[in-house]
């Protein structure tokens, strides 16, 4: 006997993501799901962001890492609340894992919550966790063709940060190609070129954060 099911496979995840989202709304958090391949600079970006936002906006981080607490250790030096989710062999964070971290955070004392996903260009793009925006980092050492190889992540992201631009002269990374490839997949994607080690472009990134935080507050006051 054949029966119609017509159910989204990830509906269990999406339901929990919606619960997370309601909690974030209540606490007036702008929530970003930060994705990239391993070593592209997610934790470095957050270190610099914590430094630059200090005294302006309160940052909080939920970080997914396979086996260690190294990322959370790096971030705790900046006096920001950082919760480490040790994901074991999981290749991405899902809504349920993020939900498990939230009771350990004082969300009402956070303006911007960044969920630092597991380093991987495929799986994290599949699972919403309750975020306002997905954002991603592509580093120049990875190659300018990556948007074409991993289209979902580039398609889902509101912002692409191109990191390590201070190293571009040592690579065959073509900035124009990278931008064109990303825009082909996602015409509306914002692109900011940065170097976490040299500090290039970070003011523009902070301005992006401030703008989207204000936008979120504006939406909340109209809701």
């Amino acid at each position: 006997m054949k029966i119609n099911v017509m159910q989204d496979v990830l509906q269990a995840n999406d339901r929990i993501a919606e619960e997370n989202r309601q909690l974030f709304l209540k606490n007036r958090n702008l929530v970003l799901n930060l994705m990239s391949s391993p070593g592209a600079g997610k934790t470095s970006l957050l270190e610099k962001t914590a430094e630059k936002l200090a005294g302006k906006l309160r940052l909080g981080v939920v970080v997914g890492d396979l086996e260690t607490t190294r990322d959370a250790d790096r971030l705790s030096k900046f006096n920001i609340p950082a919760i480490q989710l040790t994901t074991g062999s999981a290749c991405h964070l899902d809504a349920n894992m993020v939900a498990s971290a939230l009771p350990h955070m004082q969300l009402d004392k956070i303006d911007i919550l960044v969920v630092e996903n597991v380093g991987n260009l495929v799986c994290p793009a599949e699972f919403i966790v309750g975020e306002d925006y997905k954002i991603m980092i592509l580093s120049v050492t990875e190659g300018d063709e990556k948007p074409l190889k991993y289209p979902l992540m580039f398609h889902e992201s509101a912002l692409m940060l191109i990191n390590k631009i201070d190293l571009v002269q040592y690579t065959n990374f073509n900035m124009g190609e990278a931008r064109a490839n990303a825009r082909k997949i996602n015409p509306n994607i914002d692109i900011i070129e940065i170097s976490c080690t040299k500090g290039t472009g970070l003011d523009e990134w902070i301005a992006w954060l401030v703008k989207h935080h204000q936008k979120k507050l504006g939406e909340l006051s109209h809701a």
């Binding site: 006997m1 029966i3 099911v5 017509m6």
Partner: peptide, 11 residues
């Protein structure tokens, strides 16, 4: 972008 179970056959 869909990821959906259309139907199943059971007995």
């Amino acid at each position: 972008t869909e990821l959906r179970i259309k139907d199943i056959e059971i007995e």
